[in-house]
Design a protein around this nucleic acid. Structure first.
Lengths: 196, 196, 196, 196
DNA sequence: GATGAATGAGGGTTCATTCAT
DNA sequence: TATGAATGAACCCTCATTCAT
């Protein structure tokens, strides 16, 4: 594609290649640091890992929430998108819900400190909280509704509450061999079953 | 050796009463500050509330964990002691377990920030973690065992894990009207039931 | 060598018109920002207002002093040129001096932060300082000399010092309703009168 | 004086001697740094000069304005107190005003950057501004009133405005051999004379 | 025993200026 | 020539903890 083509079709932002590459470097560095030091690691550490100045991070990601979202966006999206597929795959809505929640848990437990920061009152992380909720609660709600309609589970549980609960169960789940978030979440999901 | 013995053997220690009173003042102040600012409130705030110097706090309670333990000891003990009674009261071990867990949840959700700090990897809070575990896990284990033996619940759940899960579900439970820890914990407990 | 000449000798420089236009845009933007945020406003704000990159500003105006000079050159020149006219218009040299100083004050008080930056020791603003001095001190000196020769004022006041004093009196003159630089400057000029 | 004596008479604050000494060190260090780097010098520089940690400065002087006030309090007070004496000493109110203003100017010109920071709109320095005004404007007003009543000067000049003007004339007065604030201020004061 | 002053490590953030594209 | 991304130095401020009195 020639430059004219691009210019003609869009507003033409030439510098992009560089910045794009840099942003990638940044995200990789952040992801790496998040693994070792948690999502609240000092900005300076991330900058150092990426080999850039601190301000570069602020340019790309004005708030820490922005950075975290960017780092995990793909995975969150993938999780959200898997919901309908699992529902379709069956065998029952409740089983699909369980599998989808497992996906979410698998994602969360490997992200050091992320679950803790997902708390709604964690100062400065509202955007992060909102993003996760916006993306995942509707998916969860659909699975929940389906399971409720099928009569498998009790109809009085809210998707928001369930997601929060699952998120909470994932806090500190790595680094403790005697605590298996997945197992507990499974109990929680099992607890949804209609008491017969 | 009892405290009286020690006092009798030496010259009377007039400061003792003072110190005792001081400790009480400290605990009251800490409790009050914990309610408003959480268990991670600045040491200075607590000292100010108690009307003492910061070093006084360190003298009585070398680590923050010590202070938190002292503040909540009575309630934790009461909770622990309620276990056997509830088990005896029935009607079933599983029901007793549910009631006992409710007691724990009621305690925890009203202690701003306590659940969060109970995480095993929370630096500097090992003593706190250990205390809660020492005190409560055995109680929980007994209830769990009884319920397992009665065949009400699955036999493969560890008390430690369950307590951690319940604790996690209590994180951030105040300050969010859409999240009811008690309800979720009830689901978790319900999920323990043997799948028939 | 005139600008046209240079253009004629080489291959036509089509960019020239562009650059010229760009410089105009820049000056307008700078003037606007100076009004709202003062002459020490962030470079980025000016660039943003002009719709150009920051480096473009540096290309046209290597130092901030250059930019400020360019923005106010016309007004400073106009002020300088008014001096002889006022002197000719009378009625006395001292009166003319007063009117000319008023012109300068009117200019200065409306330029947010300019007077403050005119200080000789303001790092990086030497060129600005020098420009104002080069342009205005001679004019002031002529008025002062005339007034001294006419016997209206004391003969021992230097133009440089007077200009600095007037400039200083204009600092922070906007934004304080209880401070009227013009009134104070009038006192200063009145104070020049020969003590009889 | 025994400890009991002190305890009986006051609230008994034993530690004072130390802190007092340290505060003195701090003020000396600040004064020294202010001379070389101006009153807006980095907190760290002052701390380093005093050989203390930065927080020590914040403890003693929560805001920079507090520190500056403390450093100059004695001199400002002395200046304020000299007003009535000078008025009494004569020979005329206007002469007394001139001498008093000279005192103020002598103080101000030797305080690098102080005059500049006395501007009412200088963010974060309101307390400083207020202090100077509270302390000096009333004194100036009294001198001004006396001179006005005696018929020496025009009656329409406000003490606030005059003080601001004098303060402004002192900005950048050190470090410029061609600018003598005292001389200009004398002109300003001379300009107060009633136009006959 | 009690005090509270001092410490100093950290963390976040801004902006003038340079430089690769 | 224009761009705007990157740089990184500088600064402020907070607190847990120690220590001299």
């Amino acid at each position: 594609m020639s430059e004219e083509d691009r210019g003609a079709r869009q507003v033409a932002r030439p510098k992009r290649a560089d910045a794009r590459r840099n942003e990638k470097t940044l995200l990789d560095a952040a992801a790496a640091i998040f693994v070792t030091s948690g999502v609240e690691a000092p900005v300076r550490d991330i900058a150092a890992k990426a080999g850039v100045g601190t301000a570069t991070i602020y340019r790309h990601f004005p708030t820490r929430a922005d950075l975290i979202i960017a780092v995990y966006r793909h995975q969150v999206d993938a999780c959200a998108e898997a919901g309908p597929d699992l529902l379709a795959a069956g065998p029952t809505p409740h089983a699909a819900l369980g599998r989808w929640i497992d996906l979410f848990v698998d994602f969360l437990v490997t992200k050091h400190g992320l679950a803790a920061v997902l708390q709604p009152d964690h100062a400065g992380f509202d955007a992060l909280h909102a993003y996760f909720l916006d993306r995942l609660v509707p998916v969860c709600a659909r699975l929940l509704d389906a399971a409720a309609e099928s009569g498998e589970i009790r109809p009085d549980v809210q998707a928001y509450e369930l997601m929060r609960g699952v998120g909470n169960l994932c806090i500190g789940a790595d680094s403790d061999p005697r605590y298996d978030a997945r197992r507990l979440v499974a109990l929680l999901i099992a607890g949804l079953r209609r008491p017969d």
